[in-house]
Structure formats: structure tokens, C-alpha cells
Design a binder for these strands. Structure first.
Length: 500
RNA sequence: GCCCCCAUCGUCCAGCGGCCUAGGACGCCGGCCUUUCACGCCGGAAACACGGGUUCGAAUCCCGUUGGGGGUGCCA
């Protein structure tokens, strides 16, 4: 087999859809596995969507995923001349004709003829002349069938009588997707067209055009299973979370997203599902792609993401989590995260999150240090990077937000909580806060002593946690106490005691 | 309406005629570990949509039914 040449051809819609990302990935995997090439082509037939912003919305997420291409981006709009010339050729050959019927007129004719709503070659013999608003339609054969030889689905045949004379040039002179698609795939020497199943029904049209244009053997088609939501409907922009960039902002790792996407419609021959991309490249092939729709399950993505997060070194974790803790990753999000709002607000109006970090830079430096020190404990607790903030906000901020339930449970109703806090404050005043282990020994020691004295189990960790963090649960306390520092810890315990 | 696709645990995959009393993973439930929350470990419930064929033998092949989805645009 000669090296394949595939293309990823998204329409510029302002963002990259996870379904499109999956299509891009499968094209890329196929090309890389077989040592072929991938072309990026932006299908901007429709409007003037070739702005940098629209192109970036496609290119950047692809780069984020780690997918590259060997050629492009090409733009369909740049091939306008060639497309128009082809329309002329089809016209002069009688393979296409002009039509000036409006939607209403078509409907009317159907009713008069007692035919089901549709285009029944109405203008084939009307001899319509070209002019403003006049479209060009392709003359489909009335008999026979058009067969799509699909790498995923096998032989799919369409009765030609079910095909209507479709528009290949709009009233404004622009070519439609079918025409541009056939021509561009031919002219760019595409060998394999790998795309979503929603396009399967349009394939006979492209094939008919391919034939009429005298192009010879068509490319091999492969229609990938649709990505669906929990209700098993095609993922849609309106009701589902489909923007790849949103996942990035929420702290999904690109390698996790790629791995997750690869598992939708495909599975490795062995049982190892979570594995590096180069191994997936090695194992991937089209004949192993399943034809049935796949649910894009966010819970599964979370799991895969959590596995990748756990595998990060502390340094990698700190570097990658930092933007999510400092509001950078979510800066351009429509719904900014709590972390972003808190940090941005504090930094922008000049107020400090902590007395020590009075600038954004200082805050970042401090946050990085905290992330690095707590990496292991954080990594096993988050499924996405944007969850990190809620575990450490109390360390990075001077303000303690006391959770009512936690306060009641751990301090008010906590056994001997007042004594615990009193004793801990006294003992910690003697400590130099250089050892997390010693801090643990001190706090736990207070609990043990009280337990012995009172004859009942006294848990000393809970009230201390509530005092310094305002919460009932969280990270192992000792390293955070050290990071918070002696003055701050003692101040918080004092503050808690005064609340009693 | 018409055309097309799809059909194994709730979900994603394995199974491509006998290895299947159907395997793994997510999720769920239970237990262990633990002076928080987690991680980890152990265990459990959970599926071949239905009906006909073909075959010595079918989750695997064929047909039909049912169910789900997609398309049916001067969107792609």
C-alpha cells in the first residue's frame, strides 16, 4: 500500500468541537501509523470566516492536543476560481442546469404534482438562464445505485432515485460543500476520507460529482461512529459540552483528552486502555474502528485525566496546575472559575491575597511553591486541574472562610475541642515550624494526652483543621501548616478560640 | 414520509463459528487501610434486544421485527 494522504477539513465555527477533534485524531493516527501525510483544510465555503480568529480557534486546539499536519491550512475559499470553472464545465456538458425556483415555488409544484416534498428535477427542462439568485443544480441519475465502499461500514448503497438534484452553486455564485469537497479531495490527492457518520448520506453526491468530473477512482471513505450524549443524540453545541477549549480551561490534560478520544470507537487489541500516544499510533488501524455510536462520557474522561495527573512529576504538576490556580487558564472563559475570580479580583484592585504576596508575580511564586510542596497529596485528590484551587485556597489566602457545618462538627461539638486548641496554641508557640513531622507529633500528642487524661478518644486534628482552614476535610495538615508559617497558624488558632 | 446507519453489562471497549458458566475498564455497591478527605487494595451486582434461519455447533453468518440514531438546506 502506498502511503496514505488524509485530510482534516473542519468548517470554521469559532471553536473546535470534541467530535471534530476525534475526527482529526483518527485521521492523524491513520496517517502516522501508515507513514502517510495529513492535510489541514478549512472548509470556509459558506461565508467570510477566514479571519485569524476563526482559524486560530481550530489550529490552537489541535496544537494543544499535540496533533500536527504536513500541509496547510489550505482554504476552500482560495479555490473559488477552480470551483467556478468546474461548474461551467458541468453546465456545458449538461450534467448540471440552472434553477430559479424558491422554496415556496418548489413546495407548490410538489403539491400540484401530488409528490412528496422535495426537488423532483423541476427545472431540468425549463431552460432557465443564469442571473442573480439563480442556482446551479447537479443532474442526478434517475436509475441505478451509487455505492460507497466504506472502510468502517463495508458496502453502503443508495438508490439513485432517492437522490435529488442538489445545488452545487449558490445564488450568490459560491460553490457548495459537495462540489468543493470532491474537487479539493481530488486536487489535493487525498487517498482516504475519514470523517463523521453524519456525512455518510452526502457521500453519494460527492461520488456522483467525482464521476461527472472525470476523476477516476475515488478516495477510500471511512465514516466514524457519531459521538453522542447520554441521551444518545449527536453531540450538539447547544445542549452539550462540546468545546475542546472548555475542557482545556477546566484543567483537562491534552494527553488525557487524546487518550479518551482514541477510545471512542476504537480499542486496543490488548486490555491497556490508558497508554501513551505513540503506542496508540503503533496499534491503530481503521479496520478496528467500530461502527456504532459512542457516548462521550465525562466521568470516564475524569478518570483518565486523574490517572495522567497522578503520573506527573511534582515539578510538572506544579507547572501545569499553576495557571489554573492563578486564574490564567480561565482568563478568557465565559464562566470564570472561582479561583480565577478570587485571584484576579485580589490582584487587579491591588489588594493582596496574603500580606506576603502583594503582586500577581509574588502570588504566582508563592502558589508555585505551595503546589510543588503539596504535589503528591494534591495529585491523588483531583480529576482536573481546576479542582486544585479549592484544596489550597486557605493556604494562599489570608482569609479563612469558616464552613458552618465544619465548625459545628469539629469545634463546637468536637470532644474537648477548646482544650485541644488551647494546648496546641501553647505548644506550637514553642515550635520553629521547620519540620512537618514535628508539627504532626505536637498536634497528635495533644490529642493522645487528652485522651489519656479524659479516658475517651480525643481527636486533635479536626479542631485544628477547622481553625486554620475553616473546613472539616482536606489535605494532610502538617505540610500545609508549615507552609502557612508560625505566625499565621497561631493567629488563626487564636481567632478560632475567640470565636468559641 | 423517504433514504441511510447502528444494536454485548448503565457507559466505553474485548469477542471476528467451538477457548464464553461472555473478559477488561469507568461508574455503582460492600469490605480492608486510615485520628480528616482522598489514594491504594480486595470483593460484588451488572449485558449478547426479539424472532426465524444457516451450521454438528452462533454473541459471532443471513433474513425479519423492534428499538435507537443520522440525513433529508442556496450548513458542513
Amino acid at each position: 500500500m502506498t502511503a496514505p494522504r488524509v485530510r482534516f477539513a473542519p468548517a470554521p465555527t469559532g471553536f473546535l468541537h470534541v467530535g471534530s477533534a476525534r475526527t482529526a485524531l483518527f485521521n492523524w493516527l491513520y496517517a502516522r501509523h501508515h507513514g502517510g501525510e495529513m492535510v489541514l483544510r478549512i472548509e470556509d465555503t459558506d461565508a467570510a470566516l477566514k479571519t485569524q480568529q476563526y482559524v486560530d480557534a481550530i489550529v490552537e486546539p489541535l496544537r494543544w492536543l499535540g496533533l500536527d499536519w504536513d500541509e496547510g491550512p489550505h482554504f476552500q475559499s482560495e479555490r473559488r476560481q477552480a470551483h467556478q470553472a468546474a461548474v461551467e464545465r458541468l453546465l456545458s456538458r449538461g450534467a448540471a442546469y440552472f434553477c430559479d425556483l424558491t422554496r415556496g415555488e418548489i413546495k407548490q409544484r410538489c403539491e400540484q404534482a401530488g409528490l412528496p416534498l422535495g426537488y423532483h428535477g423541476w427545472s431540468r427542462d425549463r431552460g432557465v438562464a443564469d442571473g442573480p439568485g439563480v442556482v446551479v443544480r447537479f443532474r442526478c441519475p434517475d436509475q441505478g445505485e451509487t455505492v460507497v465502499d466504506d472502510a468502517v461500514r463495508g458496502r453502503v448503497s443508495f438508490p439513485n432515485e432517492s437522490l435529488e438534484d442538489f445545488v452545487i452553486r449558490r445564488g450568490d455564485g459560491s460553490p457548495t460543500f459537495h462540489l468543493a469537497n470532491a474537487m479539493d479531495d481530488h486536487d489535493m490527492a487525498i487517498s482516504h476520507v475519514i470523517r463523521g457518520e453524519d456525512l455518510l448520506n452526502t457521500t453519494p453526491r460527492v461520488l456522483l460529482l467525482w464521476q461527472a468530473l472525470g476523476y477516476g477512482a475515488p478516495p477510500r471513505y471511512a465514516h466514524l461512529p457519531l459521538l453522542v450524549n447520554a441521551k444518545r443524540q449527536k453531540l450538539s453545541k447547544r445542549r452539550d459540552d462540546v468545546s475542546l477549549d472548555d475542557y482545556r480551561r477546566r484543567g483537562c490534560l491534552p494527553e488525557a483528552m487524546v487518550n479518551h478520544l482514541a477510545l471512542l470507537g476504537w480499542g486496543p487489541p490488548d486490555a491497556a486502555e490508558i497508554r501513551p500516544l505513540d503506542e496508540i499510533v503503533e496499534l491503530f488501524d481503521l479496520d478496528a474502528v467500530k461502527p456504532s455510536p459512542a457516548f462521550f462520557d465525562p466521568a470516564r474522561l475524569d478518570h483518565i485525566n486523574s490517572v495522567y495527573i497522578k503520573a506527573l512529576t511534582p515539578e510538572q504538576f506544579a507547572d501545569r496546575a499553576l495557571p489554573h490556580v492563578c486564574g490564567i487558564a480561565a482568563a478568557d472563559a465565559s464562566g470564570t472559575s472561582a479561583a480565577a475570580e478570587t485571584v484576579d479580583a485580589a490582584c487587579e484592585d491591588g489588594t493582596a491575597l496574603t500580606a506576603a504576596a502583594t503582586t500577581r508575580e509574588a502570588h504566582q511564586q508563592r502558589a508555585h511553591e505551595v503546589l510543588l510542596k503539596l504535589a503528591g497529596d494534591l495529585q491523588q485528590r483531583v480529576a482536573a486541574l481546576d479542582e486544585v484551587w479549592q484544596w489550597i485556597d486557605w493556604i494562599l489566602s489570608d482569609e479563612v472562610a469558616y464552613d458552618d457545618k465544619a465548625w459545628q462538627k469539629s469545634v463546637v461539638k468536637g470532644r474537648a475541642a477548646a482544650e485541644v486548641l488551647g494546648a496546641v496554641e501553647a505548644r506550637l508557640a514553642e515550635d520553629d515550624f521547620t519540620s512537618a513531622e514535628r508539627l504532626e507529633a505536637v498536634v497528635m500528642g495533644v490529642g493522645d494526652e487528652l485522651s489519656e487524661r479524659l479516658g475517651v478518644r480525643v481527636r486533635s486534628q479536626a479542631p485544628v483543621r477547622a481553625a486554620v482552614s475553616g473546613r472539616a476535610a482536606g489535605l494532610p495538615l502538617w505540610e500545609p501548616l508549615k507552609l502557612l508559617g508560625k505566625d499565621e497558624v497561631l493567629a488563626r488558632i487564636r481567632q478560632a478560640r475567640s470565636r468559641l
